[in-house]
Design a protein around this nucleic acid. Sequence first.
DNA 1: TCCCAGGGGCCGA
DNA 2: TCGGCCCATGGG
Length: 243
Amino acid sequence: MQIYNKLLEEYGPQGWWPVYSLRNTLGRDDRGYFVSGVFIETNYRASLRKSTILEIAVGAILTQNTSWINVEKAIDNLVKDNLMDPNIILKIPQDELANAIRPSGYYNQKAKKLKILTRYLLDGNFYEDGNIPNRENLLELWGIGEETADSILLYAYGVPLFVIDEYTRRIFGRLGILESTQSYKEIAEVLNRELEKDFIVYQEYHALIVKHAKEHCRTKPDCLKCVLREECSFFQNVQVYTY
DNA sequence: TCCCAGGGGCCGA
DNA sequence: TCGGCCCATGGG
């Protein structure tokens, strides 16, 4: 939580997941969302819910090993072509879907994944309020691994699961909190134990990790203005070797 | 020209 | 169980 607070102080709330129909920060209040500071009532939220869940699920697939800027182009194509609808995604030919999401890369695989996930969510009635997919069932789907499953559950359904991606491993690895050899399950157990069970915190924390990884903790790290360098074992070692 | 990006499936050791 | 390879576009 100390790391979280430092990142939050440095970068401010990130307001993830970046959804096309709700570009701005979501509120904590269960009665509705805040969009651009305007409160949206729950009955309106219900109508938004289906498109929001779909868009988060689609984004979670499209962003696999892909920068978000390319995912946005693919999502924009889907919206522009009126394809951002579960029934349409299921109905159209796979190559047509693939063509629309081409900018996100791996488009043939991802088109197949979108159809499989959409079918699962539709059949299980998971676009309706209160119905939450089971993590194990999600993992059984072709194309859904642990990170994608947890992203969907955390951001679309508010389940407090820490999303562990390459950025998470890199940052906590460099800090000295995690070993690079630890499995997803082992890392998840540590983080889910150490943090308070608040899905808003989980959502914000992962977003802040991505922000920090892009700003400073890149593959080639930029440590000089990093807010975490005092507690970072990587930086301490860099100092020993460099200065 | 090369590296990197919010992974996951598959296969052989 | 784990490393290596494949999938693919686009920006820096």
